[in-house]
Simulated assay, not measured.
Amino acid sequence: MDKTSKIYIAGHRGMVGSAVWRALEADGFTNLIGRTSSELDLRDQKAVNQFIIDKQPDVVIDAAARVGGILANNNYPYQFLMENLQIQNNLIDAAHKLDVKKFIFLGSSCIYPKLAPQPLKEAYLLTDSLEPTNEWYAIAKITGVKACEAIRKQYQKDFVSLMPTNLYGTHDNFDLETSHVLPAMIRKFHEAKEHGNAPVTLWGSGTPMREFLYVDDMAEAVVFAVNNVLPEHLYNVGTGTDVTIKQLAETIQSVTGHEGEIIWDAEKPDGTPRKLMDVSKLKSAGWSYKTDLLAGIQKTYTWFLEHQTTIKQVKLSK
Rank of each mutant, 00 (worst) to 15 (best):
F224C: 01
G144R: 00
K193M: 11
Y289G: 03
L40P: 06
G271R: 05
E122T: 10
F212G: 01
E177H: 11
E267C: 07
G296N: 03
A116K: 04
I7M: 05
T133E: 14
M1P: 09
P164T: 06
I70K: 07
A225Q: 10
L126S: 12
C148Q: 03
K290F: 06
F103R: 09
E191M: 12
L32P: 04
S5A: 15
Q88M: 14
S284N: 15
Q45P: 04
W264K: 04
C148M: 09
R274L: 07
E122G: 04
V222T: 09
D217Y: 01
V60Q: 00
S129E: 12
K299W: 06
R187A: 11
V215W: 00
N236L: 03
N74A: 14
K188S: 15
V67R: 01
L42A: 07
I245H: 04
I70W: 02
R187L: 13
I104P: 01
T300S: 14
E149A: 09
F224V: 00
T127G: 13
Q308Y: 11
N134P: 04
V243T: 09
L305E: 11
E39R: 08
M15P: 06
K315Y: 11
S18L: 05
I61W: 02
D278P: 04
V145W: 08
L282A: 01
A295G: 08
S254F: 08
Q79W: 03
F51A: 15
T127H: 11
G11H: 02
N228C: 09
R22D: 14
E220C: 10
E191G: 06
L282E: 00
E122L: 03
K290L: 08
W203L: 10
V223R: 04
L126Y: 06
K283A: 09
K101A: 14
D172K: 02
L202S: 09
